[in-house]
Design a protein around this nucleic acid. Structure first.
Length: 461
RNA sequence: GGCCCCGUCGUCUAGCGGUCUAGGACACCGGCCUUUCACGCCGGCGACACGGGUUCGAUUCCCGUCGGGGUCACCA
């Protein structure tokens, strides 16, 4: 069997939303799984709606998600000559005809069909008409009304359409520019596409396209139509991939989530990209559409954060610290251990940045949460904190174990429990009542900062 | 409206005629662990849309109803 070749073919009229990303992902996974090629085609034949800005945004998003394409992207706007050539072949072979119907006439036909409760199918009334040189026309592709067209869809199963329900479709505008259903066929054939994997909204185009393949004498590829993603809200559904990046999602987590939406592999929930490619199969894709669920996506993101090494997290969190107003050097040695202390507590990189922020502030820049300060920074606890600071002053190693021993020792000698001093000192060090484990945090912060912050909290301000 | 697709816990799903008093995950509610918050662990709540068939037996097969989605362009 020949090599699998699949493609993702966005039209550059906006951002790449999650639905598009999932279509791309399934193509990419299928290619990786089968050892085939993943290609890109930019469908920019509609000059009015297409922009370079959008093309770049889509390419950036795919890149961020880690879906590398294997050949240079094809731009339809650069292939007009090809389309013209195919059209003239069809003209020469008498497979198309000129249609002179005006928009108004077509509207009348549509209205009639609708009021009669029928599917509107252009009736071919212009087929065989003599030329009318002074009138505008479009090219229609003639489709035999006998028999039926069968799509053996790899996801949807066998879908049968009677040919009398497939109309003679317009393949070129009055100005001669080709239309979608025509160019798709030419391009997929030219690119050697073996499997057309796309959204289910294209299912009804498929019989038309199959007829064109046959008219052009081209081999028909396999088809797989993916169920669409339902949005819980319009906002959720239309958000671009980059907004998820900005919200602190890891690309692998986004892939994991959208893959699991409509596809499954037993009870497994968490997949790396390579695991996905390894286990993905079109046969396991569901036919029913799924809805976006933010809580689950966050949980999956958290799982991916937990599975990422501290060095990797450090590199990723820096830009988020920056937007949180704290500039930290990429090679700051505190960064990896700081990330490690909040790794189990962060659902997104935005959260992670917020949680490690305190490490990098000046000691006297810590702002105490009002409620936390009121509850924990009491006169009584200030005395305890001061005592603890002194206990930490000595010549002990600055490790989790030695700090813990020193603090426990202090508690014993003062006849208090750890909890009497833990929360107050957490507030002193971070400003918050919640945060990383006390001793781990102290190690990262360093002795000087710890003592500074502890004593600052004891002062009467 | 015509045509097409779909319909298991709130959500994502497992299930491919008997193993289902329907399994897992998120969320939610208890509990354990514990210096806080998390993580982790244990337990709970919670679904086969409805009605007919077929069958010894239907969540699984067929039909209908209802519900959801898609599509009916000189857009892609």
């Amino acid at each position: 069997m020949s090599e699998v070749r699949v493609r993702f073919a966005p039209s550059p009229t906006g951002v790449l939303h999650l639905g598009g990303a999932r279509t791309a992902l399934f193509n990419w996974l299928f290619a990786r799984h089968t050892g085939g090629k993943f290609l890109l085609r930019i469908e920019d034949t509609d000059q009015k709606r297409s922009t370079d800005e959008s093309t770049n945004a889509i390419l950036d998003a795919l890149q961020w998600l880690g879906m590398k394409w294997d050949e240079e992207p094809i731009y339809q706007s650069a292939r007009m000559e090809e389309y013209k050539a195919s059209l003239s072949r069809l003209i020469d072979e008498g497979k198309v005809y000129k249609c002179y119907c005006t928009p108004e006439e077509r509207q009348v036909m549509r209205d009639e069909a609708k009021s009669a409760g029928r599917t509107f199918i252009y009736d071919g009334r212009c087929d065989g008409k003599p030329d009318q040189p002074d009138k505008q026309f479009v090219w229609r592709f003639r489709i035999s009304k006998d028999g039926e067209t069968v799509v053996e869809d790899l996801v949807q199963g066998r879908v049968v359409t009677p040919n009398y329900e497939i109309e003679d479709l317009v393949i070129a505008r009055s100005d001669g520019t080709p239309l979608y259903n025509f160019v798709v066929v030419i391009d997929d054939a030219a690119m050697g596409i073996t499997h057309v994997v796309r959204g289910k909204d294209h299912l009804t185009n498929t019989p038309k396209q199959m007829a064109i393949y046959q008219g052009l004498g081209l081999p028909i590829p396999s088809f797989a139509h993916l169920p669409l993603i339902l949005g819980l809200s319009k906002r959720l559904r239309s958000a671009g991939v980059e907004s998820y990046r900005d919200q602190g999602y890891l690309p692998g987590a986004v892939n994991n989530y959208i893959a699991r939406l409509g596809w499954s592999h037993g009870d497994q929930e968490i997949f790396s990209d390579t695991e996905l490619a390894d286990k993905f199969d079109l046969a396991d894709v569901n036919r029913s559409e799924g809805a976006l669920n933010v809580e689950k996506m966050e949980w999956i993101n958290q799982q991916h954060i937990m599975a990422t090494g501290r060095e990797g997290l450090a590199a990723m969190v820096v830009p988020f610290l920056s937007t949180a107003g704290v500039e930290v050097a990429l090679d700051d040695p505190r960064l990896p251990p700081a990330c490690e202390t909040v790794q189990l507590r962060s659902k997104t990189l935005v959260e992670m940045a917020a949680k490690v922020k305190f490490y990098f502030l000046e000691d006297d820049a810590i702002v105490y949460d009002e409620k936390a300060a009121k509850k924990f920074l009491t006169q009584e606890s200030k005395v305890r904190i001061a005592g603890m600071a002194t206990a930490l002053e000595g010549s002990l190693d600055w490790t989790v174990q030695s700090i813990e021993d020193a603090v426990n020792g202090f508690c014993e000698s003062s006849d208090i429990k750890l909890k009497h001093v833990a929360q107050p000192s957490r507030v002193a060090l971070t400003g918050e009542a919640t945060g990383p484990g006390l001793f781990e945090m102290m190690v990262v912060l360093g002795r000087a900062s710890v003592l500074n912050r502890l004593r600052r909290a004891c002062g009467d301000e």
